[in-house]
């Protein structure tokens, strides 16, 4: 009886009422929005201003730089500093610019990234799905490795590389980078594979797939986001590395970062600020492009696996 009288009342209310209806009006200039966007704007300027100065300076000629207005846009745009930085800036011994270092860095980064990710993903997969006796202990050791400062291991590795005859070569540096990427990457992959439903793995086993079969045919196709994250972490990490590059290579195999340092710090003649700025920008271009191209996938991968314990 109660129910019978209630529903017509609601219907009448809906017809006669003057309450809100339709889309909610947007408040564009609330106090909250002003604070939020104001803070964002200040932060953006704080980070973008140095970049602006660098770009502007790299496009000026030396006479204009000497005028001292570092914030003013170039009166006359010139790409001369960029060309010089790439192909003819001097690093003390030779004067063929950053190009040599760039190709060295490519030859270091590509194999290091591929090797470290290939090994770490299999590591993570094995630790997540094929628990063996002592696998937790093994994992703990690997993670502890991530907390030991690099400096402690610098010299022992010099000796190891010398003993196996790889000291000073690019392949030596590739091995070092691959090993040092192992803890964090294994953790990343292990957590991602652990977050995948266990029943999927069981189903594949019942279907008869083995260790590699499951890895290649089931797990790999499902883990693109985490691979993108790993690639980004490794490319930026290895490309930006300076310490290992300067310790484990010879001048002719110096990576780009070491060469950049040598160009900027060489003290013969006038400091060519425009060339230095251009050289820095060129060096930073690779990680920057990687971020821009894969930003969305990166965020997705981080959300998918990296955060989960």
């Amino acid at each position: 009886m109660n129910i019978a009288t209630k529903s017509p009342t609601i219907a009448a209310d809906a017809d006669g009422d003057t309450g809100p209806r339709g889309p909610k009006p947007k408040r564009t200039l609330s106090r909250r929005n002003i604070i939020v966007y104001g803070t964002l704007l200040v932060a953006a300027i704080y980070y973008l201003l140095p970049l602006y100065v660098m770009i502007v300076t790299s496009l000026k000629g030396m006479p204009e730089i000497r005028l001292g207005n570092i914030f003013s846009p170039p009166l006359e745009i010139t790409f001369e500093p960029w060309i010089k930085a790439w192909s003819s800036a001097c690093t003390g011994l030779n004067c063929d610019g950053l190009s040599r270092g760039f190709w060295n860095s490519v030859r270091i980064t590509v194999p290091s990234v591929v090797l470290s990710i290939a090994i770490a993903s299999v590591n993570g997969y094995a630790l997540a799905n094929w628990r063996f006796k002592g696998s937790e202990f093994f994992f703990t050791i690997l993670i502890v490795g991530a907390f030991i400062p690099y400096q402690v291991m610098l010299y022992p590795i010099v000796i190891i590389l010398r003993e196996i005859g790889l000291y000073g070569s690019l392949s030596g540096l590739v091995i070092v980078h691959s090993i040092f990427g192992m803890p964090i990457l294994t953790l990343l992959f292990r957590n991602y594979f652990t977050s995948m439903p266990e029943e999927l793995f069981k189903a594949a086993r019942v279907d008869g797939a083995g260790f590699w079969g499951i890895y290649l045919r089931i797990m790999l196709p499902m883990s693109l986001p985490i691979f993108v994250v790993a690639v980004i972490i490794q490319i930026t990490g290895i490309w930006n590395d300076f310490l290992f590059g300067v310790v484990y290579t010879r001048p002719e195999t110096y990576p780009m970062t070491v060469q950049l340092n040598n160009i900027v710090n060489s003290v013969q003649g006038v400091k060519e600020y425009n060339v230095n700025m251009a050289a820095t920008l060129i060096t930073g271009l690779v990680p920057l492009i990687v971020y821009f191209v894969s930003g969305k996938l990166f965020v997705r991968g981080i959300a998918a696996g990296a955060v989960k314990g």
């Binding site: 439903p197 029943e199 069981k202 189903a203 019942v206 279907d207 008869g208 089931i218 499902m222």
Partner: peptide, 27 residues
């Protein structure tokens, strides 16, 4: 033995047909 799981455990990147044939292709 054949097994059916609570969460279905279908391989998400494969079509139904590939899901069905996976074990047979492995064999």
């Amino acid at each position: 033995i054949g097994m059916v799981f609570q969460s279905y455990a279908l391989y998400p990147q494969m079509s139904v047909e590939k899901n069905l044939s996976f074990g047979l292709r492995v064999a």
